[in-house]
C-alpha cells in the first residue's frame, strides 16, 4: 500500500478521533453537572439536556471532515486508492484544524456548559443566556471546520 493512502487514512482518523475525544469529555462533564441539577429539580431536564448537547457538535464536525476526506481520497472505494505521499500528507494536514480546534474547544465549551447548567439551577429563566455563552466557544470549532473543509475540497 502506498504511504500516501496511509497518511490520508490517518488524516481522516485524526479528525474523527480528536474532535470526538473533545466532545466526549465536554458532553461528559456537562452531563454530570446536568444530572446534579436534575436530581434537585426534574423539571429542568429539557433545558439541561440542550446545554449538555452543545459540546457534542465538535465530534460531528470531526466525523464530517473524516468522511469528506475518506470520500475525496477514495478510501471507501473497493480496492483502495493509491495516493502519492505528498497528496496523503495534504489530507493529513487538512484534518488537523478540526482535530485540535475541535478537541480543545469542546472541552472548554463543556466547562462553560457546566457553568451554564449551574446557572439554570439558580435562575431557570436565564437558560438562553447560558446557551449563548457556550456557543461563543463553538465559534472556533466552526472556523476550524471551515478551514479543514476548504483544505480538503481544495485538494480536489
Amino acid at each position: 500500500m502506498e504511504l500516501g493512502t496511509i497518511l490520508a487514512t490517518a488524516g481522516a482518523a485524526v479528525a474523527v478521533l480528536f474532535a470526538g475525544f473533545g466532545s466526549a469529555i465536554g458532553v461528559g462533564m456537562a452531563g454530570q453537572a446536568a444530572a446534579g441539577v436534575v436530581s434537585e429539580d426534574p423539571d429542568r431536564f429539557g433545558n439541561c439536556l440542550v446545554m449538555q448537547l452543545l459540546p457534542g457538535t465538535q465530534g460531528i464536525y470531526g466525523l464530517l471532515i473524516g468522511i469528506v476526506i475518506a470520500l475525496q481520497a477514495g478510501l471507501m472505494s473497493a480496492g483502495g486508492a493509491s495516493l502519492s505521499t505528498e497528496l496523503g500528507m495534504r489530507y493529513l494536514i487538512a484534518g488537523m484544524p478540526i482535530a485540535f480546534g475541535g478537541f480543545v474547544s469542546a472541552i472548554y465549551q463543556g466547562k462553560v456548559a457546566c457553568a451554564g447548567i449551574n446557572m439554570i439551577a439558580k435562575r431557570p429563566t436565564e437558560s438562553g443566556k447560558g446557551m449563548v455563552m457556550a456557543i461563543m466557544v463553538e465559534t472556533y470549532a466552526i472556523l476550524a471546520l471551515l478551514i479543514s473543509f476548504l483544505l480538503v475540497i481544495g485538494i480536489g
Binding site: 457538535t57 460531528i60 464536525y61 466525523l63 464530517l64 468522511i67 469528506v68 465559534t139 466552526i142 472556523l143 471546520l145 471551515l146 473543509f149
Partner: peptide, 14 residues
C-alpha cells in the same frame, strides 16, 4: 459570518 457556510455544509454533508 463564515459560520453560515460551515453550519450549512455540516447539515447537508452529514
Amino acid at each position: 459570518y463564515a459560520r453560515l457556510f460551515a453550519l450549512g455544509i455540516a447539515t447537508g454533508v452529514i
